[in-house]
Computed example of a mutant assay.
Amino acid sequence: MSLLARRAIAELAGTAFLVIAVVGSGIMASRLSPNDTGLALLENSLATGAALVALIVALQPVSASFNPVVTLVEKMLGLVDWRTAGALILAQFVGGLAGTVVANAMFGLDAVALSSHARTGSGLWLGEIVATVGLLLVVFGTVRSGRADRVAFAVGGYIAAAYWFTSSTSFANPAVTLARTVTNTFAGIAPASAPAFMLAQLIGGALGFILIRLLYPAGITASTPEKEVIS
């Protein structure tokens, strides 16, 4: 099997399990704490952060981006070519949707159910920009510092925290955003709300890329494709 095929499979599986963690823990949290939204969010954020750490550690030797914005920034930094970026991004979107279907099915819900949870407004869009810029700084800053083996813990901790300090609860990922439109549960987002979230994430990606180039003018490199660590 080619390296690109292996990387695409890793991205598909990793994004699927990430979304299963997000959606599944959201469903479980809403059932265990139906009258306490704050506690449900805490449960959801801790499960998501822990799952991210585990998934990145496990899949990092092959590919562990799980996020189209991160992959696009990798391309802009010259870490991957367009063919690789396209394959990985497609795998991330497919994996995300598959993860939602599995999470819904595990909890006895319709495999696909469009969310009615409207998330809109300038404050939430700004929250997505902030969340995405911060994620990119954490990822690429950790790699640039020579501590790529700590990316998993940095990203998991950041996302768990960003659930709380951003108004949008930090989606920061177009593939995950799209996937969350097909679950009418605690973690869902209405399809009509998703495009603005995804646009905000892309804006955050562009701003994050500019900031990374300013902070790290010497560039960020990966010694070999197998060692490329971005999530």
Rank of each mutant, 00 (worst) to 15 (best):
T100M: 01
G108I: 03
V101D: 03
V94M: 11
V94H: 06
V102E: 05
L109C: 07
Q92I: 08
A105R: 14
V102N: 01
A113I: 10
Q92N: 09
F93R: 06
D110H: 14
V112I: 12
V130N: 02
L109A: 11
V130P: 02
V112G: 02
V102T: 12
G99Q: 04
M106S: 13
I129C: 01
G123T: 07
L135H: 01
V102L: 15
L109V: 08
A105H: 14
A113N: 15
F93W: 14
A131K: 03
I129F: 02
V130E: 03
E128S: 00
A91V: 09
R119A: 12
A103R: 06
G96T: 12
I129W: 00
V133F: 05
V94A: 15
L135R: 01
A118W: 12
W125F: 14
A118F: 13
R119M: 12
A113H: 15
V94S: 07
S116E: 13
N104V: 12
L135N: 00
T120D: 11
A118R: 13
N104P: 09
L136W: 07
L114Q: 07
W125H: 10
G123R: 10
A111F: 09
T100W: 05
Q92T: 08
L135S: 01
L136G: 02
A98L: 15
G95P: 05
V94Y: 11
L97N: 07
G121C: 00
E128C: 00
F107T: 05
V112E: 00
R119P: 02
G99T: 06
S116A: 13
R119F: 10
N104D: 13
V101W: 13
G96D: 08
A91G: 05
V130R: 04
V133M: 07
A98D: 06
T120Y: 10
L109W: 11
V94N: 06
